Simulated assay, not measured.
Amino acid sequence: MEERRRGMTMFAAELVATGGVPPEHDVDSVADVLWLAMDARNYDWLVRTRGWSVERFQRWYADTVSAAVLA
C-alpha cells in the first residue's frame, strides 16, 4: 500500500509540475485521488463482483480521476 502511495505521489508531482492540473490542486491532494481510485479493491468489486468489463472499468477510472483532478 505504501509503495502504491509513493508511486501515485510521484505521478501527482509530475502532473502538478507540468501544469497538468489546476493550480489549486497540490501534490498531496492529487496523490490522494490517484491512490484511492487505483485501489485494487475497486477493480475487484466492479469487474469481478459486479461484472463490469475491463474497458468499462478503464473508462470509469479515467473519467473519475479526470473529473476529480482536472476540474
Score class of each variant (00 low, 15 high):
M1E: 10
M1N: 14
M1H: 10
E3F: 13
E3A: 06
R5F: 08
R5Q: 12
R5K: 09
R6F: 07
G7A: 14
G7E: 10
M8H: 05
M8D: 06
T9F: 09
T9E: 10
M10A: 14
F11I: 15
F11A: 15
F11T: 15
A12W: 01
A13G: 15
A13H: 08
E14S: 14
L15Q: 10
L15N: 04
A17I: 15
G19R: 12
G20P: 05
G20F: 11
P22I: 07
P22Y: 07
P22K: 06
E24N: 07
H25P: 01
D26W: 09
D26Q: 12
D26S: 11
V27K: 03
D28I: 03
S29L: 03
S29A: 09
A31M: 06
A31G: 06
A31I: 07
D32E: 12
D32Q: 08
D32R: 03
D32C: 05
V33E: 04
V33K: 05
L34E: 01
L34P: 00
L34A: 02
W35T: 07
W35I: 00
L36C: 10
L36G: 07
L36I: 13
A37F: 02
M38Y: 01
D39T: 04
D39S: 08
A40H: 02
R41Q: 15
R41W: 03
D44Y: 10
D44Q: 13
W45Y: 12
W45P: 01
W45N: 09
L46I: 00
L46Y: 04
V47S: 02
V47T: 05
R48V: 08
R48N: 11
R50G: 04
R50K: 13
G51Q: 01
G51S: 04
W52P: 01
W52V: 02
W52F: 09
S53A: 08
V54C: 12
V54W: 15
R56F: 03
Q58E: 15
Q58S: 14
W60D: 04
Y61D: 02
Y61P: 03
A62M: 09
A62W: 06
A62N: 09
D63P: 00
D63C: 07
T64L: 06
T64E: 11
V65W: 03
V65A: 15
A68E: 05
A68Q: 05
V69H: 02
V69G: 04
V69I: 15
L70Y: 14
L70I: 13
A71W: 09
A71V: 07
